[in-house]
């Protein structure tokens, strides 16, 4: 198990390879479908004018994302009434839905670690090489276990997106994941996809 602290240095990122188990500590931010679309439309493609608290949130999340990690997660959170927030269950969500946005979001904010499940495609892999960055696979469904690594919820942005879609700022200790896409153009997901496809062709021919 390789211990990594956030933000992650470029050197540390380049030393990671597909298959490496890691334990992350530090501050990260959650962001999934609504957040990625919002970041892309408002600040990258600029197809939409900033409105409401958009600019304020943008300035607040920027320093958290530089060299940092974004976690594809829609948690169960307690303390919504009192704002004494606590993560009750917080496993990863399927990352491939962010494939259209992720590479550009990584480049824009200089994000070095994307955490989720199920892996991502060629566009994100290219960004991993460029930025550089890695994709870290957390265990899907292991929500109570992962929530225990969340020491503190230090803030939340865009709660108007709803609890699962909001951007939660969390402090984690020894958050477990496995490198499945690295900065050297290797992807475990591309490998498994290709091998299983070949096996499928064989089975279909039987």
């Amino acid at each position: 198990m390789r211990a990594l602290s956030l933000p992650i240095s470029e050197e540390a990122i380049r030393s990671l390879n597909v298959g490496d188990p890691v334990a992350l500590s530090g501050v990260m931010i959650t962001g999934r479908d609504a957040a990625h679309k919002w970041m892309s439309d408002t600040f990258i493609k600029k197809t939409r004018q900033p409105q409401g608290d958009d600019l304020e949130v943008y300035e607040a999340i920027k320093p958290l994302l530089v060299g940092g990690a974004i976690y594809h997660c829609g948690p169960v959170v307690s303390g919504l009434d009192t704002k004494d927030y606590r993560f009750v269950a917080a496993g990863p969500t399927t990352s491939t839905r962010e494939e259209p946005y992720q590479g550009d979001v990584m480049r824009h904010f200089n994000i070095r670690a994307v955490i989720g499940k199920g892996g991502m495609g060629a566009k994100t892999l290219a960004a991993c090489k460029e930025v550089p960055g890695v994709y870290l696979h957390a265990i899907g469904g292991a929500a109570s276990l992962i929530a225990q690594t969340v020491q503190k919820v230090t803030g939340v942005y865009k709660l108007s997106f709803g609890v699962p879609e909001a951007m939660w700022v969390i402090e984690v200790r020894d958050f477990p994941a496995v490198v499945t896409m690295d900065a050297h153009s290797n992807s475990l997901h591309a490998d498994i996809e290709a091998k299983s496809k070949a096996e499928l062709e064989r089975l279909l021919a039987v």
């Binding site: 997660c73 829609g74 169960v76 969500t93």
Partner: peptide, 13 residues
């Protein structure tokens, strides 16, 4: 752990 603490097995319920 989820059983012991009565917390959701997966956050996507």
């Amino acid at each position: 752990l989820s059983r012991r603490n009565s917390t959701p097995i997966c956050q996507d319920t």
